[in-house]
């Protein structure tokens, strides 16, 4: 099997799995786990988009 993902889709998958683990392990109750997991996902995904725009500006 040879899976070819774009950089963005690989980064989003990475963000999903890492956020699930961070949410579960870094907080003590279910509500906080969900909130922290969503926060981490937003930071990962937002960071990717922001970094992409920064590189686009630097390239010009």
């Amino acid at each position: 099997m040879n899976l070819h993902l774009s950089h963005f889709s690989a980064a989003l998958l990475f963000a999903v799995f890492a956020s699930v683990v961070f949410g579960i392990t870094q907080r003590n109750n279910t509500r906080d786990m969900v909130r922290y997991g969503l926060y981490c996902f937003a930071m990962f995904a937002g960071g990717v988009i922001l970094a992409g725009w920064v590189m686009w500006v630097l390239r010009r």
Partner: peptide, 21 residues
Amino acid sequence: IRGVLLLASIFSMFLLGLAMQ
């Protein structure tokens, strides 16, 4: 629930890594 989510996440990540060569 926590165990299944951790298992699914870590297994998926490892297997996707292998699938991506």
